[in-house]
């Protein structure tokens, strides 16, 4: 590459500026959780952990704020359920698309990808509308009132599941593609049954990918806003609770404290996922 020292310097400066642009809002969101002030703004009044651990108003800390804790709890619950479901469905899809041939496979593959291309808001409203149509119909025909088809946690789970399954399918299918069929054949020749081969040879090979898919699905579910917003009932997950707080009550540093917890949590999970990937390469 021919390039003069001056140009190279400008290029480096651009990269530095870009990374500064990337981290600036994250640092701002994080830092003011530790400022001893009632507002997340300058001046800096000294370091405090009150916004995490103070049990009394006006500086009610995150770990004593019941609504936020309930939101956190809902998010964790939804995240684990959705991630488990979408990894299960994603594993089935991976086998379906990597191992089987069937008519209209090309069309099916496009359908597999489509949920990623539909905007989250539209996925949310379409599932809301469809669930209400079924619920109304059942109500009119049989006089049954199905609560779980009305906005609430079950609908949020379905809404997030609808697009996360695409992600988990792609992650797990990519791993399955690298599988050496000779391993299965060897196990079969040695007298193992199909089910046993699946359990002792193929699935263990997929575990790392299933784990990463689980982590990614959990994180995306935890952070999801658009789809969730349309389907939320009385049990709001954390992102919705935090948004409500921001819009209605104005921001206090407790929101920065939530941000810190969220960043730490997702950072640790991301590291865990990277560590697992690295381990399997060795």
């Amino acid at each position: 590459m021919q390039s003069s020292a001056g140009l190279r310097l400008i290029y480096r400066a651009y990269m530095a500026a870009f990374f500064l642009f990337l981290v600036a809002p994250l640092i701002a969101a994080g830092a003011f959780a530790f400022n001893d002030s009632l507002f997340p703004s300058l001046p800096w009044n000294g370091f405090t952990l009150d916004w995490f651990f103070s049990p009394v108003e006006p500086k009610l800390g995150l770990f004593y704020d019941e609504r936020l804790l309930r939101g956190l709890n809902n998010s964790l619950y939804i995240g684990v359920v959705v991630a488990a479901l979408s990894v299960a469905a994603g594993t089935c899809n991976a086998f379906l698309f990597e191992r089987k041939s069937f008519p209209f496979k090309g069309v099916a593959y496009i359908l597999l990808i489509i949920p990623l291309v539909i905007p989250g808001v539209i996925l949310g409203i379409s599932i809301l509308v469809f669930a209400s149509m079924i619920a109304n119909w059942v109500d009119a025909e049989f006089g049954l009132f199905i609560t779980w088809l009305r906005p609430g946690v079950p609908l949020i789970v379905l809404g997030q599941f609808s697009f996360l399954t695409t992600i988990t399918s792609l992650v797990i299918a990519a791993r399955l593609q690298k599988f050496d069929m000779a391993l299965e054949e060897a196990a079969l020749n040695l007298g193992a049954s199909r089910l046993r081969v699946l359990r002792t040879v193929t699935l263990p090979f997929l575990y790392p990918a299933m784990f990463s898919a689980f982590v990614v699905a959990f994180l995306v579910s935890f952070e999801n806003f658009n789809t969730t917003l349309m389907l939320v009932g009385s049990d709001a997950p954390l992102t919705i609770t935090m948004y409500d707080r921001m819009v209605k009550a104005g921001s206090t540093p407790v929101l920065n404290a939530v941000s810190v917890v969220l960043m730490l949590g997702s950072g640790l999970l991301a590291l865990a996922s990277v560590a697992v990937q690295r381990e399997r390469k060795v």
Partner: peptide, 30 residues
């Protein structure tokens, strides 16, 4: 990986970070 860091952070936190930076009583203005 550094490029991917914000990807792991919720949209909400990122937007909130910009609000803290840019509003009238925010970091830039003060």
């Amino acid at each position: 990986l550094m490029c991917l860091i914000p990807l792991w952070v919720s949209d909400l936190v990122r937007a909130y970070g910009w609000i803290v930076l840019l509003r009238e009583t925010g970091v830039f203005s003060s």
